[in-house]
Amino acid sequence: MEILKIAAIGITASLLVLFVREHRPDVAVLIGLAAGILILFSVVNYLTEAISALQALMDKSGIDLEILQAVLKIIGIGYITEFAAHICEDSGSRGIADKILFGGKVLILIISLPLLSAVIEIILSLLP
């Protein structure tokens, strides 16, 4: 089961971070970073399966692929922003984490603008 591996990685990493933090706080942050990456790699196959299933669904439903591409991009940007912000927060620089979150929000806004216009066009076409 994947969840056991994820839990094992998380617990061992956090204990090691606790142990290494008094001597070497910089290495402790890197341990947390490595644990985060390992956890993602253990579930990345399921993520690819889910995304390909979504794409098959979207093809069947006839909605053009552009919307799904935008949604996937938003999810990807959200994940990377969250990942980077937490690493910065762990290493103690809260200001930089907030700046990263701000940048991520702006990028998501830019990507979601065409979606917004598509929705509005659909609504206008429905009105009599």
């Binding site: 990685i9 090691l16 001597h23 070497r24 341990i31 490595a34």
Partner: peptide, 12 residues
Amino acid sequence: VEVIFKIAAIGI
């Protein structure tokens, strides 16, 4: 998991 142990070992 051994990557995490390797990093911790180097740190210590």
